[in-house]
């Protein structure tokens, strides 16, 4: 079967903007997008540039945007893409600088990974002085990450602010928070850095990273665990932490969220921020969109309260 492959090409040294080129190729059963790219390069256009190595979803080199979603070219079936989308559209990873065609500059990606101090801090023994080896399951699969960058390219928060550390680096940071060999003091120091702007509280929980990850790392779940660890370590003054704690308090009190009180829980007594929010609050009030802050709780709220205020085991995971 002969299929058209639409490839986004761009040479920043020679061209002002990217353009698309269509290559027609006879494909056979079981071919992957990477197989097709290699054949296009060998048979049709030797200038097409892309990065690959292992061809078996281990090295993480060939992540690209295939039919609008971040995928490893080496494990993406042409037949399935064709059936699902009726086209094969191949573009570089989004929101990363393009070197040429499908090859993006991963320097920023690696510098963010370095920024989370990806090694164990403190001495390599537990707080009790006994060396402890981690069990693999403690990492919730974040150690399966192959650093392909698919999650970062798909991240909607990174799209809006490319200073965001991003899902891959934060998942890597979680690997050390979950490691029993790192001392509590080192973990606390780590969380103090991660709770800053561009860190754990910039994630909107859009689930894109979870959806596109070829290794089921679920970076967003790692970010959520980092947030929990930060709150449990006493980092409760960021807007994000206040949001989580205030939300839980309101649900325990009323059974449902009360949007009239929620902003005050997040903003606290920050007067300039309150002054920014007030005009919107008044407009909402005039449209009947501000719930009564004195609304009675739901039936059975005492059970909701009992569930949410029960003593829990604690611990970072």
């Amino acid at each position: 079967m002969r299929l058209p492959f639409i490839i986004t090409k761009y040479n920043p040294e020679l061209e002002h903007a990217a353009h698309q080129e269509t290559y027609r190729l006879d494909v056979s059963r079981g071919m992957t997008v990477l197989d097709a790219l290699i054949r296009i390069k060998n048979e049709l256009d030797g200038r097409v540039t892309f990065r690959y190595s292992c061809r078996s979803a281990i090295c993480g080199s060939c992540a690209m945007t295939i039919n609008g979603s971040e995928k490893l070219a080496c494990r993406t079936s042409i037949r399935k893409e064709w059936e699902r989308h009726g086209k094969i559209d191949i573009a570089p990873l989004r929101h990363l600088p393009i070197l040429k065609d499908l090859a993006v500059d991963m320097a920023g990606f690696w510098s963010k990974t370095r920024a989370v101090t990806p090694w164990l801090g403190g001495d390599s023994s537990s707080d009790h002085g006994l060396p402890v080896m981690p069990d693999a399951y403690q990492f919730h699969n974040v150690d399966a990450c192959i650093m392909c960058g698919a999650c970062v390219a798909a991240c909607t928060s990174h799209e809006a602010d490319q200073g965001f550390l991003g899902p891959a680096a934060l998942a890597k940071a979680y690997r050390f928070i979950a490691d029993p060999r790192e001392s509590r003091a080192a973990k606390t120091a780590r969380l103090a850095v991660l709770e800053r702007p561009t860190g754990i509280w910039d994630c909107t929980r859009c689930n894109f990273c979870v959806q596109v990850c070829p290794k089921d790392v679920q970076p967003m779940e790692a970010i959520i665990r980092l947030r929990r660890a930060a709150i449990e370590a006493g980092f409760t003054q960021t807007g994000g932490a206040r949001h989580v704690l205030g939300f839980k308090q309101l649900v325990a009190r009323f059974g449902r969220l009360n949007e009239a009180i929620m902003p005050l829980k997040v903003v606290g007594l920050h007067l300039t921020r309150l002054a920014q929010i007030m005009p919107l609050g008044i407009r909402m009030l005039l449209k009947g969109k501000v719930p009564n802050p004195l609304h009675p709780p739901i039936q059975g709220v005492e059970h909701v309260r009992r569930i949410l205020t029960r003593p829990t085991r604690g611990g970072p995971v």
């Binding site: 928060s157 909107t204 929980r205 894109f208 807007g239 994000g240 949001h243 929620m262």
Partner: peptide
Amino acid sequence: VKCCGFPIILEKENIA
């Protein structure tokens, strides 16, 4: 299919 930004609109207004 993207995010509306609502979950962080109070604390990270500019990104949201």
